[in-house]
Design a protein around this nucleic acid. Structure first.
Lengths: 339, 339
DNA sequence: ATGAAAGCGCTAACAA
DNA sequence: TTGTTAGCGCTTTCAT
């Protein structure tokens, strides 16, 4: 009985023995043909290929993985799939993965350590060929589980508080970037620069706050740091509270990530505060929209694609050395109209 | 010899027989404990858990998949991971996946049929529990391979030219949305509305162009359709050519996706054309930045999260019916200052 | 409640 | 060049 439409669904997927029977050869020969290993006469190879094609044969991945004790899959576990920073980084990983014949799957922890832990357990269970991870939290991450497995790991973007000294990493010099942005705001004449950063324990949030402090202390200014959630709504709330209140009002804000900067700008607009006239603004991470919003944003740009590519390269060249490798990339300040 | 750092790497991952030996039970008992199947005395169960924990035991996924002939993994194959439309949709899938105890992995075809084909073969090889796919191309897709396998499939966002009648789908009424946007531009007084849409053969591009035509023909206006690549740069180039040239210049542009709209706006700005004074602009897809750019964008908003959620629901409720299920969701016009 | 044993689909030794 | 065979780690009868 035909199934729906023109494409009929087979009762079950063909297996190697089906192909072998159809081609009149042994399973071993089919395996050799499919993998290009060993030696098979051209005539038989052709028959095998024909049979495989006719049956729509696709080797069963788990059986191969079991037999070979390896997979050709990398996982990228990222903290927020909706943040263009991470998606751009993923492109860098993907390109290397393809070059070395690996597949890349993406896992979104959504900044949730429980979800992250589940993906980490999965990566171990699948004995992934490699994992690139931006940890959800410097403290609570299950990264240790991954490190005590045999799965190659590279951390990116965020430093792991507990495990930094044991794992390869690709990071950006967040402190320097934040300091540069803050110094820039001060040089433009800001008297009180506030900082909206991310959750405590997330290394990017902490390091950017420290860079901010460096700059403020250098001029003996007043520190004003607020924590939010690295999301647009959090940036909005933080800036709204900060500037709607009756206390001393900042005349510049350094916002420590791209999405929060959007929220910050929205809050300033809702409060009727001109940017940069009333409040100067600088963000962290460039994004597709930074030149199009009003005013165009001054940001600390990160080499996102390169971060991914470098991480993947570390995965490819498994270290025989005792010491983990740490790659630190430099961010760059891009000055636009918002400051 | 201790490995680097405090976390020592085991020579090899523990297997079920190791745990069985350590706990003084059979492998079958360990399996029963790990899976909560069968019956095991509390005392033994505890010993097994302790041993498993001590050895850091994690059941080998491929072996389980081989034995059980099933996986608990869904794949989402999307055309462009950098487009927030897809990432928002993925959230909808993820939430359902978690509810039903499945894992979701993301695959980025990057609008490339070859890459898409590779991911499709992978999905078949892994006998994925389900695949949600936004096809790279209505024509060239390897979707047929997937349909003739036993892997449950739902298409989203883009219609498959060849296979639409055989596969579950969740789509948006692109034609109606595009028509609404174009009518809106005309009502605002535009005399010549141009349309920048995506590649021929991508259903969203084609359907949005048709909706545009519907509106233009209704007023007996002139049609002016340009094809680009659904990316920011493509939108820029298309609009730049269109308005820098000496021919008859449009006084409104309907741009058929979110990223191209950013490019279009940039082009208009570079040409010194005021929006909406000289050229009215409307886009397709809402995005986090649409209210923050200057001017805020009039767009056709799509229920992105719901698209993903509905697709996942179709995956969960495998149809016993002969006919595939088609869910069509309604977009809505959001009028802002750009028009 | 527990263990022994078979076997999932594939590949890699080994034999011929 | 090709086939036979063992076994990867796990789950699931089938006995007990």
């Amino acid at each position: 009985m035909a199934a729906r439409g023109s494409t009929s669904k087979p009762a079950a997927a063909a297996k190697i023995s089906d192909v072998a029977r159809a081609a009149g050869v042994s399973s071993a020969t089919v395996s050799r043909v499919m993998n290009g290993s060993g030696t098979v006469s051209p005539a038989r190879a052709e028959r095998v290929l024909a049979a495989a094609s006719a049956l729509g044969y696709q080797p069963f991945g788990p059986a191969r993985a079991l037999r070979q004790q390896r997979t050709r899959v990398w996982a990228a576990i990222v903290a927020d799939i909706e943040n263009p920073f991470f998606t751009a980084m993923v492109r860098g990983i993907e390109d290397v993965a393809r070059d070395v014949g690996h597949r890349l799957v993406l896992c979104n922890s959504d900044n949730d350590v429980a979800r992250e832990a589940a993906y980490i357990e999965d990566a171990i269970a699948e004995r992934m060929a490699g994992v690139v991870i931006a940890v959800a939290s410097a403290e609570g991450s299950s990264l240790g589980r991954l490190l005590s497995s045999n799965v190659p790991v590279v951390t990116v973007d965020r430093r792991s508080a507990r495990h930094h000294a044991e794992v390869d990493s690709v990071l950006v010099d967040n402190r320097a970037g934040a300091r540069a942005a803050t110094e820039h705001l001060l040089e433009r004449g800001a008297r009180l620069v506030a900082c909206v950063t991310g959750p405590r324990g997330v290394s990017t949030a902490d390091e950017r706050a420290i860079g901010y402090r460096d700059a403020v202390r250098a001029v003996k200014g007043t520190e004003y740091v607020v924590r939010a959630d690295f999301k647009q709504g959090g940036g909005y709330d933080a800036v709204h509270r900060m500037l709607a209140g009756g206390g001393r009002r900042p005349d510049a804000v350094f916002v420590a990530n791209n999405l929060m900067t959007l929220g910050a700008l929205q809050a300033l607009r809702d409060l009727g505060l001109d940017v940069p006239g009333a409040v100067r603004l600088a963000g962290f991470d460039d994004a597709p929209w930074t030149t199009l919003i009003d005013p165009p944003l001054t940001v600390v740009a990160q080499p996102t694609y390169e971060i991914g590519r470098e991480a993947a390269r570390l995965l490819v060249t498994t270290p025989e050395a005792q010491h983990p490798r740490h790659v630190v990339l430099a961010p760059s300040l891009v000055v636009r109209a918002s400051s």
